[in-house]
Lab assay of single mutants.
Amino acid sequence: NRHQFAPGTFSGVLQCLVCDKTLLGKESLQCSNCNANVHKGCKDAAPACT
């Protein structure tokens, strides 16, 4: 399954699913299917969408 990433819209601090570093809103993407949160630069390394 493929992620459907869109710019993240969340408040607070989240961790990137891929690199475990802190996500800030402006550099984040969120999958509309599984709600995975990743950095824009990490999206290609994200595991399959669940």
Rank of each mutant, 00 (worst) to 15 (best):
N1R: 06
R2G: 01
R2K: 15
R2P: 05
H3D: 10
H3N: 08
H3C: 07
Q4P: 06
Q4C: 11
Q4A: 00
Q4K: 11
Q4T: 13
Q4M: 09
F5H: 01
F5R: 02
F5N: 04
F5G: 03
F5A: 00
A6V: 14
A6S: 13
P7R: 03
P7M: 12
P7K: 04
P7E: 08
T9C: 09
T9N: 11
S11M: 09
S11L: 05
G12Y: 02
V13S: 15
V13T: 15
L14A: 13
Q15D: 12
Q15R: 13
Q15W: 04
Q15N: 15
Q15E: 10
C16H: 01
C16V: 00
L17Y: 12
L17V: 07
L17E: 04
V18N: 07
C19R: 00
C19K: 00
C19F: 00
D20M: 05
K21I: 09
K21L: 11
K21T: 12
K21P: 00
K21V: 09
T22R: 10
T22Y: 07
T22G: 12
T22A: 09
T22H: 06
T22L: 04
L23F: 03
L23R: 01
L23E: 15
L23D: 10
L23P: 04
L24H: 15
L24N: 15
G25F: 03
G25K: 04
K26L: 12
K26D: 15
K26E: 14
E27S: 03
E27N: 02
L29I: 14
L29Y: 07
Q30E: 11
Q30I: 04
Q30N: 11
Q30S: 10
C31K: 00
C31S: 01
C31W: 00
S32H: 08
N33F: 05
N33R: 09
C34Q: 01
C34F: 01
N35A: 09
N35T: 11
A36G: 10
A36N: 08
A36C: 11
N37G: 11
N37M: 14
V38E: 03
V38T: 06
V38K: 02
V38R: 02
H39A: 02
H39Y: 00
H39T: 02
H39C: 12
K40S: 15
K40C: 14
K40H: 11
K40T: 14
G41A: 11
G41P: 11
G41Y: 06
C42R: 02
C42K: 04
C42M: 03
C42L: 02
C42P: 00
C42Q: 00
C42Y: 01
K43A: 10
K43H: 05
D44V: 09
D44H: 13
D44G: 12
D44N: 11
D44T: 13
A45H: 13
A45L: 12
A46F: 08
A46Y: 04
P47I: 13
P47C: 08
P47G: 12
A48H: 05
A48M: 08
A48I: 13
A48Y: 09
C49H: 02
T50G: 06
T50L: 04
